[in-house]
Write a protein that binds this DNA or RNA. Structure first.
Lengths: 237, 237
DNA sequence: ATGTGTGAATCGATTCACAGCA
DNA sequence: TGCTGTGAATCGATTCACACAT
């Protein structure tokens, strides 16, 4: 699904901290969100039970996830909200600011440029690109749209280190190649295609069509078992 | 992450076909996309090796995934593209048309309403809702925006059986409750919150902030191991 | 000869259950 | 006493490797 680097070429024993299992990393972001809410409400301590409830997981799993960070709770008491928040944020790499470029200023790209969720926590949208001359130079979300032809130059100037790819499927692989050539190593793609990238480049995918199809699968099964229980009921009388 | 129904209350031995493991269901949608490309190119047969390559997985995994559907390949030959395409589509529930409502006509909701990826295969956007009186009644993607107050009525009239929730985090749970009350059992949420739903309702989440944070985690690790290998090189001379 | 279908082996993720500490 | 931290047990997902069909 994503390209990772189990213990990359340059990863020696010096690498700070063991790697956290991928499934745990994904959940840590959820805990972080819940903790931020608690922080906003002025709550100072949580138990694993309470936090797990808010995150929709079992408390044993939450404790195991947190144990990969070290030991930050107090037995018999719980976790300090502030300390835990900072610890997770630091471990996820959210103490540094990430500069994001959006490639593709169509419907989706423009919606993303205006999405406060990015800016809210440590992700600064620093550039937006399009290939269409009619769009280049126009303003979107307070940024002037740059030409994809100037990709490398503008990325370097704006200090971008992460890219959101919001272009049609047919141009996604080509642009992805250009991004990689320009030195980008973290890509979040909304294009419904499997992107081929060299090792060392991390790609994550958000795929609405896939998600709807998965929903369809479950909905169909629910229909079927409903029908079969109805026919069972019918033949039983 | 999602609500499933391991072998639901009504699921008896009559349920057509065994359940497909969740991880396989997700990949079947990817295979389907690759197969549709092959179909468009006029290719008639594929081997598991070729299709796996296109989907970015190992061939053994592809064969195991397909084996949950039954036996549709020919030993020594491969799979017929057309037959396999139809088989997967049928099993995923894509032979019936799904009618989708978009709840939330903000930036994201409007972008989604105009997204061809929905309409392209079996998902018809049948309604779009918003709570803002200034937006209600305006036209988005060829549809008049309905009031969320009329949710139940409009959903029933338009025959919607699947909802995309594109509203701010703070109103997501409340709207989700209303959707469930109105009989919706399949929800794709873009809101960055954990939605609580009763059993029998399937929620899937698309979460851009989480994805970016996961990228940040890996990018930070890559930075760290780069730095440690540099300092190792320095101290070695 | 070739490539599918699948048991057996492996690997990772989740849950259990309890020892240990405040 | 109460709740964390974690080995051990379980469960699911992936990979291996080969028997079998064409």
């Amino acid at each position: 699904m994503t390209t990772h680097d189990p213990s990359g070429p340059a990863a020696g024993p010096e690498t700070r901290g063991r790697a956290i299992p991928p499934a745990s990393v994904a959940r840590l972001t959820i805990y972080l969100r819940a903790l931020n809410s608690l922080l906003a409400e002025g709550v100072e301590r949580v138990s694993s039970e309470e936090l797990a409830e808010a995150a929709g997981v079992k408390s044993a799993m939450l404790r195991k996830d947190l144990s990969y960070l070290g030991s930050y709770g107090t037995r018999g008491v719980g976790y300090e909200v502030q300390l835990l928040t900072r610890t997770i944020a630091a471990r996820l790499g959210l103490t540094q600011e990430w500069r994001v470029a959006i490639v593709g200023a169509g419907n989706l790209g423009r919606a993303l440029a205006g999405y406060s969720g990015f800016t809210t926590r440590g992700f600064e949208v620093a550039a937006i690109f399009d290939a269409d001359p009619a769009v280049i130079g126009s303003e979107v979300g307070g940024l002037k749209v740059s030409a994809v032809m100037d990709l490398e130059k503008v990325l370097a100037r704006t200090g971008v280190n992460m890219v959101v790819l919001a272009v049609p499927a047919r141009s996604a692989q080509e642009l992805c190649d250009e991004l990689v050539a320009a030195g980008v190593r973290s890509i979040l793609s909304f294009a419904p295609v499997v992107l081929q990238v060299p090792p060392g480049v991390e790609v994550r995918k958000v795929d609405m069509a896939t998600e709807l199809q998965i929903l369809a699968y479950h909905a169909q099964r629910a229909q079927e078992s409903e029908q079969s229980s109805q026919s069972r009921a019918r033949s039983a009388r």
